[in-house]
Design a binder for these strands. Structure first.
Length: 416
RNA sequence: GUGGGUGUGGCCUAGUGGUUAAGGCGUCAGGUUGUGGCCCUGAAGAUCGAGGGUUCAAAUCCCUCCACUCACCCCA
């Protein structure tokens, strides 16, 4: 039997309510904050991601779906959203538009990882980017928007963590201090942390091993090593967040897995434990556009995983609104009645009334059973008698009433 | 990529070496003429995740693979 490739899933009809719900709330919040939708290709030149995300990151090193196409081009299925958006910003000269340019996307993401709950090889992200403005007001907006988005979905048990990891000027100094601190303890670190010490110093702060945690708690904090500009930026951000009463906590252990982040980083996490913790995250990436050969352009963005949102909606028992109102089922008996039913179905749909037509040769009982199972609001019954008198029986499935009425009156009756 | 758990009709579950793998939900059909839901009856639907091995005999024991799942890694 064929099955979907590992780490991929079919999103079945009964799941679709959640997807439509999330997509609709995403579009609504974007409209409210002045973001426009952009769709970029599913694949890009491999270099774009290698340059953008960072060669040393896990994503680039071992998680990309990369291949050569028939023209010998190095191609990669999009492993995150931001790099493509920046490419499009540069390619289409969006620097000439009023800044910041605000874009959002809703798209699938591919990473070759070991699947588990809330983690797939193909998953979907909703993300948005504000490109071309370094003002911490923009950071504030981006964070508030994420928070309100989750609120609008009904998710409540969330917490917001923020941190600043500095910029080109001040981060090297901090990293050096951090490295020195950890080198003193290197004998007591776990295996992973020893490699992190060489390769990805910031991630030392993220280790969950109980033994390493003691070092994390006393580790030098990035916010104590910020340059004047970065410090000012972070102070203003907190001031603005306070002003709009967003509950956040500064977490000096918060670092993000992609190399392009500068200054502000933030994550939103469910308070309920279990599964993958982060539901959404983002931050500022002031060097990415220039790294991708655009003019130096500051930017800040956010992304969230739809599957994880839905996981949390279910966990919190939030029901998505139904997608459609079941309406009219048309049952018929005999060839003449069937002919009338075909015409009537066509006419009702033409009038904008949703119809499910009975097919095959089923008893009336079976047809009504089907109408019932489909949770139809009405059943229209047509037999020889009705054909002869040009009437139909309109049966209210919820109540237990039915009436005989001229076929010409049916549309008005259903609409009224 | 590492380690643990799991895998029985569409869904949930019983069955841990021995006749045709059991039940519930769901689906379909009937319960006298053209009326659903409740109830009753019946039917369809499973080479027990796949392949190999042990055995007179395997859903049950062993191996390999696949998938799911949990923890790690990492991330959304």
């Amino acid at each position: 039997m064929y099955q979907a490739p590992r780490g991929t899933v079919d999103i079945l009809p009964e799941e679709q309510v959640y997807w439509r719900y999330v997509e609709q709330k995403a579009a609504a919040i974007c409209s409210l904050y002045g973001y426009e939708r952009i769709d970029t290709p599913t694949f890009e030149n491999t270099k774009l991601f290698a340059r953008g995300i960072g060669d040393g990151t896990d994503i680039v090193e071992k998680e990309m779906y990369s291949f050569k196409d028939k023209g010998d081009n190095d191609i990669t299925l999009r492993p995150e959203g931001t790099a493509s958006i920046c490419r499009a910003y540069i390619e289409h000269g969006m620097a000439n538009l009023p800044q910041p340019v605000k874009l959002y996307y809703l798209t699938s993401i591919f990473r070759y990882e070991r699947p588990q709950a809330g983690r797939l090889r193909e998953h979907h992200q909703f993300g948005y980017e504000a490109i071309g403005d370094a003002d911490p007001v923009v950071d504030t907006e981006v964070i508030e928007m994420a928070w309100r988005f989750f609120q609008s979905l009904g998710l409540e048990k969330l917490s917001l963590l923020i941190n600043s990891i500095g910029c080109k000027e001040c981060r090297p100094n901090y990293l050096e201090t951090l490295r020195k601190y950890y080198q003193r303890h290197s004998d007591n670190l776990c295996k992973d942390c020893r490699t992190r010490l060489e390769r990805n110093t910031l991630r030392l702060l993220d280790c969950k091993q109980s033994n390493c945690r003691q070092f994390v708690n006393n580790a030098p904090k990035s916010i104590d090593y910020l340059c004047e500009d970065c410090g000012q930026h972070f102070n203003l951000l907190q001031k603005y967040l306070d002003k709009i009463c967003l509950p956040y906590s500064v977490n000096h252990k918060l670092v993000r897995g992609l190399d392009y982040y500068t200054r502000t980083v933030f994550e939103i996490q469910p308070e309920l434990e279990g599964g993958q913790s982060t539901i959404g995250g983002g931050g500022r990436y002031d060097n990415l556009i220039s790294e991708l050969e655009g003019k130096p352009t500051p930017a800040v963005g956010f992304a969230t995983g739809i599957e994880r949102i839905i996981l949390n909606l279910k966990r919190e028992g939030i029901a998505a609104p139904a997608l459609y109102e079941p309406s009219v089922f048309i049952a018929s008996m005999g060839d003449n009645a069937r002919e009338t039913a075909v015409k009537l179905s066509s006419d009702l749909r033409n009038a904008g009334i949703g119809v499910v037509q009975s097919t095959g040769t089923k008893s009336l009982k079976a047809q009504l059973r089907q109408a019932n199972n489909l949770q139809m609001q009405y059943a229209v019954i047509i037999g020889d008698e009705e054909v002869a008198s040009q009437t139909v029986i309109l049966k209210d499935m919820a109540g237990n009433s039915q009436e005989n009425l001229p076929v010409d009156c049916l549309i008005d009756k259903l609409k009224g």
